[in-house]
Structure formats: C-alpha cells, structure tokens
Nucleic acid binder design. Sequence first.
DNA 1: GTGAAAGCGCTAACAC
DNA 2: GTGTTAGCGCTTTCAC
Lengths: 328, 328
Amino acid sequence: MSTIKDVAAYAGVSVATVSRVLNKKGPLSEKAINKVNEAIEKLDYHPNILARSLASGKNNTIGVIISSFNDPFWSEIAQEIENTAREKGYHVLYSIAQEQMKQEVVALEELQTRQVGGIIYACGGDEDLTQQLLQQCGIPLVSLINEMDGICSVISQDRQGGVLAARHLIAKGCENIVHVSGNLDRQLSANDRTYAFMEECQKRETTCRLYQNKAGNAASPEVLRRLVNQVFCENPYMDGIFLSNDIMATLCISCSQSQGIRIPDELRIVGYDDIRISSLMYPPLTTIRQDFKLLAQRAVEMLLDQIEGKEAPMLLEIPVELVERKTT
Amino acid sequence: MSTIKDVAAYAGVSVATVSRVLNKKGPLSEKAINKVNEAIEKLDYHPNILARSLASGKNNTIGVIISSFNDPFWSEIAQEIENTAREKGYHVLYSIAQEQMKQEVVALEELQTRQVGGIIYACGGDEDLTQQLLQQCGIPLVSLINEMDGICSVISQDRQGGVLAARHLIAKGCENIVHVSGNLDRQLSANDRTYAFMEECQKRETTCRLYQNKAGNAASPEVLRRLVNQVFCENPYMDGIFLSNDIMATLCISCSQSQGIRIPDELRIVGYDDIRISSLMYPPLTTIRQDFKLLAQRAVEMLLDQIEGKEAPMLLEIPVELVERKTT
DNA sequence: GTGAAAGCGCTAACAC
DNA sequence: GTGTTAGCGCTTTCAC
C-alpha cells in the first residue's frame, strides 16, 4: 500500500501538494495537478480514510443501529438510509442489535468507538436503555422507533394508519373484527396503530378482539403460525382482521386458504408496511403503506442537520396510505 | 470526547500504561489497572478505533460488496456474514453496488480507502470488471457469486440444485416443463442450476422450455409480473415450472391462483433459495434451499484465513437441498 | 512495572 | 503556488 509520501516523492512535490490535489483545495498549478494524478495512477494509491479522519477530525460517517437485515421492513429502511447518506457524501456503518438481547449497549459502544458523527436508532430494544443513549453518548441521534424525550424522531403517522385500517374494514361491512398487535409492553410508536384502530372500532361500535404478538416479527415461523392458528380457532365468525405487519398478514392469508375461507368474501385482511412481497402474493394484500424512502431520507437529513449544527425539528411524522388490493 | 491522554492524566499514569490496560497486554500492576479503569469510567472514555488502526496497522474490518439489502436472498447472506464476522471479532463494512450500474468500481475503491483487510464480493456485476478486482486491488477476496481465476469462491452446488429440481418435477409426473432462468449472459454460478436442469430434462426426454429473466430480481414488480404472464399465456399446457428464485415462484403461485389453475394438481412449482417467506405463503413453496448460514460462514472464514496468512482452498461448494412443501 | 518518544498517514496552519 | 511542520489518538519499541 503506497502512502501520500510515496506519491509526493514520485511526483517530485511535497505531501501538502498531494493533499491539496486530493482534496481539490487551495491554489494549485496545472502542472502539479497532472504530476500528482499521474503518480496516483502509477502507484495505485488509495488515500487512507482513517488517517484522514484522524487528522481532519471529521469522518463523514453515520451509524445505524438496526435489529436485523432480515426483516423486510427494516431492510427497506436500511437500503434507503444507505441511498440517501451516499447521496450526501456520507458513509453508513451498521451495528446489529437483536431485539430483546440488550445488544443496544454494545452496538452503541461499537459505533462510538468508530467515531461516527451521529446515529440513527432503528431497533426496538429496551426503552430505558435506549433512553440512556441520550444521556450518555452526547452525539447526534435520530430515532426511527418512537418519540423520546430530547431525541429527534422520525416516525410514521401510525395513529392515522390504525384509523384508516379500521374505517376500511368497517366500510367493507366487517362486524366481527380481530387485530393482532405487536408487543404492547414496549414503548413503540408502532403500537399507536393498535390503539387508534381499537378506538376507531369502539367509536363505530364494532367489536374488535385483540391479540398480541409479544415475540414480534423475529419469532420463528412456527411460533407465528401457532398464534395465527389460535386466532382462527378462537374466532370462527371473524369477518375482518388487521395485522400489525405484512408478514403476519401473509400468514393469515395462508391460514385462510388452507382452511378454505374465501378472501375477501368471508374474511377481509389488512396488513401494515407494504413490503415488496405484499403486491406479489395472492391475493395481493391490502395494506397500510409506510413511506420507507421518506422515513429514511428525513432521518438522515435530520441527523446531518444536527451534525452540522443546524437547527432540526424534534419530531417528524410521515404520512401513511391505505393501498387497497384484493384482500378486502 | 476524552482521549487516552485525558485518561492518563486523570489516572496519574502514562499513556503507555493506559494503552496496555486497554489491550490487556504487557506487565501491569493491579493498582495501575484499577486506577485506569476508574478513570475510563469517570471520563466515559471510548478508544478511537481510527487512531488505533492507524497506529497498529490492523483494523479487524472486512468489507462486503452487495447489490442490495432488499433482495431477501442477499439480506439473509448479509445477516449471516455479520453474525459470523462479529463472532470472530471482526467488523463489517458494506458497500452497495447496484447491478448493471457499474458501481462495483466505486464500491471497491470505497472499501479500500477504508482500509478493510479483505472483501467479500456478493454482487452480480460485470464480470470483466470483477476480474479486475483481482489484478488491481491485491487484497484478500472471496467471491460468493462465481468461480473466478485466482479468486477464492464459496458457492452453492447449483448444478445439484438444478438436477434435484428436474428429477423432482419429473418424478411427480410433469411432462411439459418450463424454466425461468436469470440472465444467462452473465457468468454466474447461479446459472449452473439452469444448465443442469435443462440437461437433466433432456436426459429424461422431457420437454422443457426456457425463459430468461434478464433484468434479474431487482426489476420492478410490473416487469416481473409481465414476464410471468407471458410464460403462462404461451404455455397453456405446462404442468411443471422451475424458477431460479423464490420471488419468481411467488409470482407464479399468484398467477396460477388468479387464473384458477390448481396447485399442485394442474401445475407444480419449484423455486430456489428458500427465503423466509417461502414457508409462510400459500401454498407453502417447494424449493431448493441454499444454506445461507454456511455460505456466509465459510466465506468469512476463508477471508480471515487469507488475511491471517493461512492457506485457504480456492473453491468451496455448499450442498443444496430440496425442501418439499405443497406446490409439488 | 512504567514512562518517553517515535511514528502510523494524513490535514492544515504558516512560512516562503 | 508550494514546502515545512505540528499535530490528530493511538501503539509500540526501548530505556529505566
């Protein structure tokens, strides 16, 4: 690996000149530029970003704490964070913190150690721990998970999502509704979709029975399937069901089909997220679409604003949208 | 942000001692250790990895060039790479290179610049460019895409996968088979599944018609759907279909169901990959399972062996397995 | 067992 | 326009 010194020597200039050429900064003669570029080419020189960051004190890197690359919702988000950050000249470092394993602390430590300029928190971990991020770390932070005291957040309008789902099912004539939520013990903005959905049902005087998927999406297929089976067993007369994510909705479609329940005539299904597969499956899923792109984009922008010392709003809410397909 | 100097000053020792405590290396007195640890605690000190790497010349980081986090197959791989690397004390840096956009060069540059010790190449880009990786970069490399001259590879036994699929469909009585491959212009080991499948059909004297999905998995739902529709239109009598990935298989299930074609009685479907959703959809998909975990694990191990100067094999082939569910 | 000091590859004053 | 030089935060000899 050649260094800036090698380049300087080869080009017959000083390291300062090479550095100037590299950064396209400062007064420079055509001749110097050409010589340096030639040397760079010849020596196959790649600047060492570590040294650069160390010397300059900034490293154009943001960190993302995420629960997994496997969850379709979060992998969409990761992809869009990556796209946006790159566009703005930033790199992204990921740190995986599996939920319910208290890995957030390690993840945070890791990113701090790597000197990221700020962190996007996109992993539903223990709320109290997460709160400590604020107190302890003192670097710019954006949460994609929920509203937290003193931490900037970008979240979907989940209450609106819940209301849309309820109104849609009721408008389609459902009278016997079931909803499977996520883990309500957790302080997630995602749970607002449940609260709003239940309230709306109540307001419309429609019965709605609530089930909780405590284990969340990360649970094994068997566990999820068992829960869905239980729901179907215990609610033979349900005519509408709202799931807090599209994976659960997929399982419901699957269960209905295997039991010969006709969709949407006998049972109407509404999911949440609108992940890629939702439009490809059969029947194509009616669902509440979260705007991945905008969520990620705004989160990155908010973080960069903080990093660059600009004023940033504390909370941004991204609209959701009902996408009607063939399950309702 | 406090530095090692601050810690040294606070603890009343030299920076060398702090460094020794940090790295648990060299002769150390209990007293010194305690003082330093206390100082670290008090000052909320986080070592700066950049400086550490720069000084020590090693940075325990590997790079991964991947086409997207969104493709379920590759996100499974990414997740497992992450898990394995972490276990071995390495960090992972991702660089996204969307296929057919020649972003591999930039991606590679980026990772080199960040001083990764080696790179896992997991992105089907232009083969000639990819080959240049070898010549140009001179750092340890492992390909998850195909066999390349002089580059270590870890790939699935795709020929075996193709044969398994063909035999299975034929054993189930299919006589009029269609296969949708990926882009055969590309030099991907994945294409072996196609070649082996076609050969096996021929050997068994079963007709098989071939379609190519040139755009690959990254194409929009509409494009994929159009292709599947075309296949169904042009082959009213097909009784078996083998898709080169599970997303395409999902679309085929969807198309069959919407046309009232009974699965598996009238049409048998075999996918490839066994992504998470494949067991959750209806009917649960018969597919060729790739061993994500082993692929990723071996790739990481192979790379670390190279980095640490150990002897590594040039090629590792990971077995695949037919998972029979309800579409055949 | 501990400290002083050189140096990793680079940037950014500051001098010329 | 260009070169010299002092660090950035850390590791690592080499003395003591």
